[in-house]
């Protein structure tokens, strides 16, 4: 009997949404379980790291790795799974671009620990207890992974064959990618799969009239017209600078695109382009008015790099 191809799924710095994205294949998950021999899936199944360590190199046919790399355990698993896998897939935006955990690149280990273990109002930590890399107890040594200053994408740590964008990737695309894997129908390595080459604007069915705005609004500040472009109504929508293929589901429930599918194929830095487009359509020549309108965006860095700070050109906030 022919050996079933091996499949591994791993979660690094993630929220668990990508696990749910795979499970959301509903009945099709049974097809996947039928087609593959799953060798690692910490969320769902009981395999241990040592089960992976004993596998021969490149014996895992496909590994879907979700989550960003922010500590030494995740880095270790990235290297391990790279060694053991023929095809390593950065599944989901966190693995592809850093994702929401990537926003931590506005801070560093010290400031995060200071906040979490000292400054938060409900914390009582007079002895200044901090996580240690190792701690001796009578029974032996306890270790914790090292928490890094900077969050990285998977590809910034190990070479990656394919990238599946999405926070999480939509069901149809996850299905398509797994189908392609099962049929051996993947494009050249290095490609983004499970997405289109056009922007979210192409997926979105709203009516576009005139891209000129006199101010920005947060989604809660106005009740937008559900048939017209949100950006034209002043709600910042990243769709014009975001790769499509998701079907624009957020737009269909009156919420703006936040950019989770990452930059379009020909864009070097998603945040930079989004900033350029937003600034360009502000409809005034008056300097004071420009400043006033610009000031209505509360967190420009957050808006532009919500999902992709580690993958951006500057990668992180500069600190002394």
């Amino acid at each position: 009997m022919a050996q079933k191809p091996k499949l591994a799924l791993y979660w690094a710095a993630s929220c668990g949404g990508c696990e749910i994205a795979v499970v959301r294949l509903y009945a099709k998950i049974l097809d996947v379980a039928e087609a593959f021999d799953i060798v690692l899936w910490p969320c769902i199944m009981d395999f241990k790291y040592k089960d992976v360590e004993v596998l021969p190199d490149k014996s895992i046919d496909v590994c879907l790795f979700n989550g960003a790399i922010r500590n030494s355990e995740q880095e270790h698993m990235a290297h391990l799974l790279r060694e053991k896998s023929k095809v390593l897939v950065a599944y989901g935006t966190c693995a592809y671009m850093g994702g929401i955990p990537g926003l931590a690149n506005v801070a560093n280990r010290e400031s995060i620990f200071e906040l979490v273990y000292h400054d938060t109002p409900s914390t009582a930590n007079d002895n200044g207890v901090r996580p240690q890399l190792s701690y001796q107890v009578p029974e032996g040594e306890l270790t914790l992974p090292e928490f890094y200053d900077t969050v990285r994408t998977l590809a910034q740590v190990v070479p990656v064959e394919y990238f599946v964008p999405g926070c999480p990737p939509v069901r149809e695309q996850t299905e398509a990618v797994l189908q392609a894997v099962m049929e051996g129908q993947l494009p050249a390595p290095g490609s983004v799969v499970g997405a289109s080459d056009k922007t979210v604007c192409y997926d979105c069915t709203r009516i576009r009239e005139d891209k000129r705005i006199r101010g920005f609004h947060r989604p809660y500040e106005i009740i937008p017209d559900s048939t017209h472009c949100l950006l034209e109504q002043g709600i910042i929508c990243a769709g014009l600078a975001t790769r499509g293929g998701c079907g624009a589901p957020c737009l269909s429930v009156n919420m703006p695109c936040r950019g989770c599918y990452g930059p379009p194929p020909n864009v070097f830095d998603q945040g930079g382009k989004l900033l350029s487009a937003l600034a360009s359509i502000i409809d005034t020549q008056d300097q004071d008015e420009i400043e006033r309108i610009a000031d209505t965006v509360p967190d420009l860095l957050g808006v532009c790099y919500l999902f992709g700070l580690p993958a951006s050109m500057l990668r992180r906030v500069r600190q002394d």
Partner: peptide, 15 residues
């Protein structure tokens, strides 16, 4: 314009 990539946002037209 590379029509493979253009999503039709209309920013260029107003600029």
């Amino acid at each position: 314009v590379n029509e493979e990539f253009c999503g039709g946002c209309g920013v260029c037209a107003v600029l």
